[in-house]
Design a protein around this nucleic acid. Sequence first.
RNA 1: GGGCGCAUAGCUCAGUUGGUUAGAGCACCUGGUUUACAUCCAGGGUGUCGGGGGUUCGAGUCCCUCUGUGCCCACCA
Length: 860
Amino acid sequence: MPAARYRVRLMAAIPDKPSLDGIETPLIERWERDGTYRFDRSATRDQVFAIDTPPPTVSGSLHVGHVFSYTQTDTVARYQRMIGKKVFYPIGWDDNGLATERRVQNFYSVRCDSSLAYEPGYQPPFRGDAPKGTQEIPVSRPNFVELCKELVAQDEAVFEDLFRRLGLSFDWSYLYTTIGDHCIRTSQQAFLRNLARGEAYLQEAPTQWDVDYRTAVAQAEMEDREMPGAYHLIAFARTDGLGDVTIDTTRPELLAACVALVAHPTDERYQPLFGTTVRTPLFDVEVPIVAHHLADPEKGTGIAMICTFGDTTDITWWRELNLPTRPIVGWDGRLLSAEREWITTAAGQGAYGELAGKSVKQAQAKIVELLTSSGALHDDIRPIKHPVKFYERGDRPLEIVTTRQWYIRNGGRAADINEALRARGRELTFYPNHMWHRYDNWVENLAGDWLISRQRFFGVPFPVWYALDAEGVPLHDAPIVPDEADLPIDPSTETPPGFTADQRGRPGGFIGDPDIMDTWATSSLTPEIAGHWVDDPDLFARVFPMDIRAQAHDIIRTWLFATVVRSHHEFASLPFKGATLSGWILDPDRKKMSKSKGNVVTPMHLLEQYGSDAVRYWAANARLGTDTAFDEGQMKIGRKLSNKLLNAAKFVLSFPPIGGGVAIDDPVDLSMIAKLDAVIVEATTAFEAMDYARALERTESLFWWFCDDYIELVKARGYEGDGSALKSLRYALHAFLRLFAPFLPFATEEVWGWWQQGSVHNATWPTVSGLEGDPAILDAAGFVLAQIRGAKTTAKVSQKAAVALVEIAATQAFLDTVDPATDDISTAGTVARYRLIETDSDPVVNVVLEPTQVSSGASG
RNA sequence: GGGCGCAUAGCUCAGUUGGUUAGAGCACCUGGUUUACAUCCAGGGUGUCGGGGGUUCGAGUCCCUCUGUGCCCACCA
């Protein structure tokens, strides 16, 4: 595109009553029309500032937390644009994954069935609020995906509207969606590369499993919840006939899955029993008593039952002690129905038969009943509350089920990869710095490789097939991969090279991998996706590695880490140089705002009520990494600031423009410019350190001083047409508009349009004036003026009241400093006469009001 | 149990390498304006800078320690 497309526009007239109301929409349209935020892709990497933006999950609505963090990043983007960087600032929607599936299921009342064939032109009978109790209609995976796409498109339009209204300066032409072909292709290509290099592998292993979603879950997606439970004491009969061994368990329903009892090697109570066996109650299965250091003598009876699998320690014991596998919990969270071959007695099989088909919860109730009547269960059942692992989106506790899953090596099993990824963390600049600890902590303590496969439907399919042997058994060890050029592919509908479609599912034929990738496996590639790694290497070279990744601190372990893993494997580099971590929004009671608490405020209503700039002001006031209370008071202040900017600008511009030959030469004006220069330096330094909040605070502070003190002082000279004053006012306004532009894009652009060409957002960030001024002059003048104002306030007279005499007693240095400002002070404070008295102490100002001005009620 | 934050005015928070008498906004009170300002301005602060100890000529700032509070991780028989 052309580098600069200036549109000839008539200068907008300065309104009599400037207003913030309704300024957003025309400006949004103008920015889009003019391509104000378009990325200039002719720029080389060193001229580019690239931002890796979080694609929000499209599953309903945006909340104030989005407004908060996206605004913070936007201020940085706007600053970078103004210092001359070509800003690559794309946005995407994260619309694949479980959240969307669930919404689609409810919205259309359908259920995805991968075994069904695609039905072109399928229309679901229900839309929106399907009648309650309606049977979910099975549809094929491609049809289901079509419905997902249809629904997310509606949500995305709403998101886009809000983001534009907020003034986020994305280049919308690079918009991506995680369910779009481009993302699928990128994910699949990255996966195939991982596979080819051995970084991705398929393994059958015990896996954390959500029984409702019926999918495996990764370590990073699990959370603990405090749940009620109960200890059950269960007696196991020793096979040597010398009595019982009693264990304590919260999961008696897993008794049939018991493979051993375990105690600590040094536990004297159980040392004699190591190597002996006991028989499980009810099922009468002989299991050994073994020793392992993870057994805790302090817990329960000091000896535990090992089941396959009740928790992660069971997995460790099972693996390290080479114990057999006796699975009893199925994918649906119910006890498996088929006969368990290790239960050999008729009574045992009978007992198991009573449990088979029951949910874990039902099975627990039943087995307690059975154990009680058999006498093996101590009647002292002690209820407790204990943390239980859940999938973060799940409703029931995770079970551990042995399944075949895809993993990506992330240092959870290999020390060398772990160290390499920790080194990447040290290489990355975190804003704020201390967030690095969360990264390092997580990587250091990883429990296993990254499980990326999900047994779901709406996501990126694994681009592999498996040949079937003569018996129809899949050859999982030798996945068939497509050519990268053929991506994206869906193995459930497409045929692998060397096969025909009718061989699908037949012995000697093939099957497609039925799984999809976890959403993080796609979003871990946002720099590659946005930068078009797969289809535009020229663009990619100009934007990668990106400059910053913006995100919230709670997803360091997921999004940030996963992105580093993918980039490390593929490019042996970081995906971005820095990461800015935003805080959370807390409600006024300091609790984290969340949908489930019902305390979420809808952002659009805030934008309408206070104006976008005012809401942005609130967001930009919070520093990175700091959780912030939701505070409409701050928005009111932001609105006042924006309003002040309009009015101060109107006032400054009400004076006639001054010719080019006029110099700023009055010491008072030079003093103001010196202060302005200092703030420009501070704001610039702050922005370079991603400290937008400080840049705003310094600018705002100077601006109010500029309005209240400087303008008031030089107003009179302005009315007289003094060149230096008029030039200074416009000079300062020009700078203030640009300093505020990252924060208040609408108000600054509105004012800019009154007297400047182009967009303030493509203007150059202010730099120091190069003029020599003494800031102390205005400090001294401000001090004297404050004394005069204070005297009038004390006397309860108008600020316009005349002053007969101002006596300033101070050091000669102070008197010399204030001297150039006395004329301005005179007009601003209506002072008739000064008397300067040299002393060697701190300045003292004595104000003598004109007698006629003293109100009759005043004392004396 | 491990790690990382935070604690400053009634509220929300600044306070950059240690340096005069610790600041801002909000709220509150008083007064003044109402031809730049759907308002604006001026004036109004007895703060144990969480407690204690230390370093220093000097500590809100650096060190130690304790307390409170929040988050992350681990533990889950």
